[in-house]
Design a protein around this nucleic acid. Structure first.
Length: 1007
RNA sequence: GCCCGGAUGGCGGAAUUGGUAGACGCGCCAGACUCAAAAUCUGGUAUUGGCAACAAUGUGCAGGUUCGAUUCCUGUUCCGGGCACCA
């Protein structure tokens, strides 16, 4: 009886489906456990072997937890809105809903073959109205809320209105300090952004709503987008390459557009603090806290020398209001360096530029700003070339009244701090390089800590050239300066965050519509009973007139004054883990009962690429929903495991290029020439300029062509050889399947292959030649365009899902990135066959029996239980698989076919290889499914050892091995060791300095 | 440029807390079974020298701490992920 994996897997997949074995109830006496995979986008390319890595890991863990007696939720669904479907629609005219549905169907078929234990009755799809109704609903909740800094939580906007009616905004200032109240003429100073209750009550509705918008958690503002005039559309960052559009190569500039935002900055502190209560890797926590970027510093105000007005003919045309230029406010984390400031740098977007640029500098400044407009933030930061322009104007250091030139440079970003920095070249590398480049004199305030060759960002130096700070250690000076600037009223201490509010709108079609109507410039929410606001049908996916989304082209939409933006990809994925708990509820997004039962996701598996995007947004949504009392926990994920990427291992063939040939002196047409490929080692030889190689290649090619054309007197020449990607699926290891290659494309049909020893294969001669065509290899991203994708279904077809699952795990630690190589899968397949043979022999048939197990067999079993359980618990699935292999090898060696042992081994393996285990479980007489078997317990009594083979090292280098009792004392050990021949030889009659004996580890003799 | 990872035999990887570097698997070599092949089984396999015993070298590179470092520290190179509109 053979291991017929195809039959077994099909049988059990049907059986499990028929019996709804993966259906999970929200009502169970068992403890709950929630295992979640990161939400997949159903891409048209389908799954390759990299995708299921995390799903297999989570599946193993979910099955393991179920065996351990938990009620396990393990759902799957689709993050179905997204740019690729819309792009596909633009190119092929197929509605995104249609292509998405097709993709989902393929995706599902692929997943089903792998045998996952997903509860498909809970499937969600973010692009379905019954799902996005609730995305819109939550958006409205955020729209109707503000962040109360006093109570440190989200509260309803109604309660804020009440506060304004009673006390104005004295206790609740605008979240963005720079906000300017609209001038309403109702007894209000435009320079202040405080208002009283009386003022509030007199404001007209527009003013009131404009003010409230500044507080809402979901709000409308203005932001910059990548605008491509030629395409008339807004582009995503990855559609822009080096400042031009990916499609067409048209120029892209930044443009301000009305945008929706989420006020995630209000949650910065709580997002930071929450990291202390979740089980994420330190690297992940670090990435998130760096992204939030909380820093402590000071805002310092510098007066600006009014050179512009000074230079002008002071006439009466200068209105009073324009006469005084406001101060330049900089944010610094190092106020201690105030006397080392040699220049100021302001962002090219800085609002003061227009007012402070001197006439002489006008042209260069304008040119520079135009240049920067075409550059992305990332390009600006990554740029090694130093650039900038002087404004022609000086700021005044408030402490020593020194004149400080104000420069503009792209390395200062408008979005961070105040968009202006005080540059201290002796202490900051970037400032240092800038000063060197523009020959700005450098003041040294840190004495010998500054070499003059590079900046030194130390806080330990004793300050010099620093007026009242001379002799003070920098670290201490920070506080002194902070107090001083507050005392003098020239600045204040300031906590700053790098994180910005999250842009929450896209000028696209394929996303959730905003449930918002605009009337007289005021955004009004739709009523809850009007939800879902369904995405209307469109005929064209072209952008609207002013770069708005395609919805702006639909009269029935614009007539109702509905918002024309749609929500971004992360809207639906910010809360999907809650919908899985209660997926069919049409009265609520998720009942409180369901979310209280399931609570946090206990295990979340996904890639680090989501480290700061999805993970922060979903954490913020969770906190918002928690504040509003809609759920009972404020962190979505208790534990996060990051899976590594599976890279592709590409294969190359090496084609001769620019070939010419002649027959009997008559030159031939290049298109008649078969393509000629040289093996990797010959190609490498060419690159190393090995002598004579070209002749040998030409000779071999000529011979091959003579056979191919059945003619003689052929002269052949080529110029060079280039590597070409070849489909990895027709390469066995590095050996090309020549027939498959010839059949893959018409132009390859009569290819000629030249092997390492210069024998060759033509189409006709092939059978007579002994030789292998060896391909080159390279690790690249797994992608269709490199022909290195491997479809999991092909592997399931050839080896079975159980083999595929185990092999994916066996490749290495889940967290690590590694290249895929199909070659090793045979070993895992052999292991499963070996497991099968412990039960059934091809010749003898049934070999398992009901005999009593002996001690050595029990020892193998319990060792395996302990190891596999530990490894599974710590997500070390690769060593878990290897422990299973060891157990099967040892039981085979012991010729153990005893049900008493094997049955428990099956339970251990069923999370990894569910089909074969279920089959054997039933074949050995069990009626119920193995899915709910009880996980075996490792019993220590079978594992206790009395002696150990100790490595005996001389000066740390192992020289001998000795079996010594585990309860030996130091004296006993020394005696045994010193009487050993090998050790004596090394000691050479001398006394050892020391003998280190670490119980159960090792012994080291120090000479 | 900034932030976060990674690097160990021909290959994927193991070594869980500073304690025998290379478990397990692939590949390769040799052998058994077989008319033959496949499958299966047995043995070997880091490198160099040696018939062997054994010795030297060895965890990207250069240093350091330690009786002892793949593991800790400093510096450095290369590769991967992210950097706010890919998902």
């Amino acid at each position: 009886m053979e291991y017929n994996f195809r039959k077994i897997e099909e049988h059990w997949q049907n059986e499990w489906k028929k019996n709804d074995v993966y259906k999970v109830s929200n009502d169970s006496p068992k403890p709950k456990y929630y295992v979640l995979d990161m939400f997949p986008y159903p891409s048209g390319a389908g799954l390759h072997v990299g995708h299921p890595l995390g799903y297999i890991a989570s599946d193993i863990f979910a099955r393991y937890k179920r065996l351990k007696g938990f009620n396990v939720l393990h759902p799957m669904g689709y993050d179905a809105f997204g740019l690729p479907a819309e792009q596909y629609a633009i190119e092929h005219g197929i509605h995104p809903a249609v292509s998405t549905a097709v993709n989902i169907e393929n995706f599902r078929a692929q997943l089903d073959k792998i045998g996952f234990c997903f509860d498909w009755s809970r499937e969600v799809n973010t692009s379905k109205p019954e799902y996005y109704k609730w995305t819109q609903w939550i958006f409205l909740k955020l729209f109707k809320s503000f962040y109360n800094r006093k109570s440190q939580k989200a509260e309803s906007i109604e309660s804020l209105i009440k506060i304004f009616e009673q006390e104005g905004n004295i206790n609740h200032p605008f979240p963005v300090a720079g906000f300017q109240l609209p001038v309403t003429g109702i007894g209000h100073e435009s320079s202040s952004n405080e208002f009283t209750s009386q003022q509030w009550n007199k404001f007209d509705e527009f003013t009131q709503q404009t003010i409230l918008m500044e507080y809402r958690l979901a709000y409308c503002g203005y932001g910059e987008v990548n605008w491509c005039e030629a395409l008339g559309t807004v582009l995503a960052n990855d559609e822009v390459i080096n400042g031009v559009s990916e499609r067409g190569g048209y120029p892209v500039v930044k443009k301000k557009l009305r945008q929706w935002y989420l006020r995630i900055t209000e949650y910065a502190d709580r997002l930071l603090e929450g990291l202390q209560h979740v089980d994420f890797s330190d690297a992940m926590k670090e990435m998130q806290s760096n992204w939030i970027g909380k820093s402590y510093g000071a805002e310092i105000s510098f007066e600006i020398q009014d050179t512009k007005n000074k230079n002008k003919n002071l006439g009466n045309e200068i209105a009073n209001s324009e006469a005084r230029i406001p101060n330049l406010i900089v944010y610094t984390t190092r106020p201690d360096t105030i006397f080392g400031v040699d220049f100021m740098v302001i962002a090219p977007e800085h609002e003061l530029i227009g007012r402070i640029t001197s006439r002489e500098q006008q042209t260069v400044v304008e040119e520079y700003i135009a240049y920067v407009k075409s550059r992305s933030d990332r390009e600006r930061q990554a740029e090694k070339k130093i650039s900038g322009v002087f404004t022609g104007t000086y700021a005044i250091n408030p402490f020593n009244k020194r004149e400080i030139p104000i420069w503009i440079s792209e390395y200062v970003l408008a979005g961070y701090g105040t968009g202006a920095i005080m540059a201290v070249p002796c202490g900051d590398e970037r400032d240092f390089k800038f000063a060197k480049h523009f020959n700005i004199p450098i003041t040294n305030i840190i004495g010998e800590y500054f070499s003059g060759e590079e900046a030194n960002a130390t806080k330990d130096a004793i300050l010099t050239n620093s007026d009242f700070l001379n002799g003070v250690v920098m670290r201490d000076a920070i506080g002194i300066v902070n107090n001083k600037i507050e005392e003098l009223g020239i600045g204040k201490k300031k906590v700053n965050y790098k994180m910005r509010d999250a842009a929450f709108s896209r000028q696209r079609y394929w996303g959730e519509p905003f449930p918002i109507k605009w009337t007289n410039g005021i955004a009004y929410p739709l009523n809850e009973n009007e939800l879902p606001l369904e995405l209307p049908h469109v005929d064209s996916y072209k952008p609207g007139p002013e770069g708005e989304g395609p919805l702006a082209n639909i009269p029935s939409w614009t007539e109702q004054h509905l918002e024309t933006n749609t929500m971004p990809g992360y809207a639906g994925s910010s809360w999907y883990f809650l919908r899985y708990m209660d997926p069919h509820n049409d009265a609520e997004f998720c009942s409180r009962k369901a979310s209280d039962y399931w609570g946090q996701v206990d295990l979340y598996i996904g890639g680090t690429e989501h480290a700061v995007g999805h993970l922060l947004y979903s954490r913020m949504w969770t906190k918002g929903l928690y504040d509003l009392g809609l759920i009972g926990h404020d962190e979505p994920y208790r534990k996060l495991v990051n899976q590594g990427m599976i890279q592709g291992s590409s294969r190359f063939v090496y084609r001769l290029n620019e070939c010419t040939f002649s027959i009997n002196g008559q030159s031939g047409d290049a298109k008649d020439l078969p393509q000629i490929f040289i093996s990797k080692s010959i190609f490498d030889g060419l690159n190393e300029n090995k002598t004579g190689l070209i002749d040998e290649i030409s000779t071999a090619s000529t011979k091959a062509l003579e056979i191919e054309f059945r003619k003689e007197n052929i002269i052949f020449e080529f110029k060079k050889s280039i590597p070409i990607h070849v489909d990895v699926n027709i390469v066995d290891g590095v050996e090309l399947d020549i027939d498959a290659f010839r059949n893959s494309r018409i132009e390859y049909a009569n290819s000629i292959f030249i092997f390492d020893n210069f024998t060759f294969s033509t189409k006709d001669l092939q059978a007579q030649v002994e030789g292998k065509y060896i391909c080159g290899t390279e690790v690249e991203k797994m992608s269709k365009r490199y022909f290195n994708t491997v479809n999991p279904n092909d592997l399931c077809e050839r080896y079975g899902a159980d083999t595929f699952r185990m092999y994916e795990m066996f490749l290495g630690p889940v967290e690590q990135s590694k290249p895929w190589d199909t070659k090793g899968i045979e070993g895992v397949h052999r292991f499963l066959k070996k497991l099968w043979r412990l039960f059934y022999d091809e010749v003898k048939g049934k070999v398992w029996n009901e005999q009593k197990a002996n001690d050595s067999e029990l020892k193998v079993l319990h060792k395996a239980i302990k190891k596999i359980e530990e490894d599974t618990e710590r997500f070390s699935f690769n060593t878990g698989v290897s422990a299973a292999m060891i157990a099967v090898n040892e039981l085979s060696d012991l010729k153990c076919n005893k049900k008493e042992i094997l049955e428990r081994l099956l339970i251990l393996l069923t999370p990894y290889a569910p089909h074969i285990c279920e089959e054997l479980w039933h074949l050995t007489g069990n009626q119920a499914t193995i899915l709910d078997a009880a996980y075996p317990k490792a019993e220590e009594k079978y594992l206790i050892e009395s002696t150990k083979n100790y490595p005996i090292a001389i000066n740390g280098k192992t020289r001998a091995e000795l079996n010594i009792s585990l309860d030996a004392t130091q004296q006993e050990v020394e005696q045994i060791v010193l009487s050993n021949e090998t050790i004596k030889k090394w000691l050479d009659g001398k006394q050892p300095k020391k003998i280190i004996y670490v119980k159960n580890k090792m012994i080291n003799v120090v000479i």
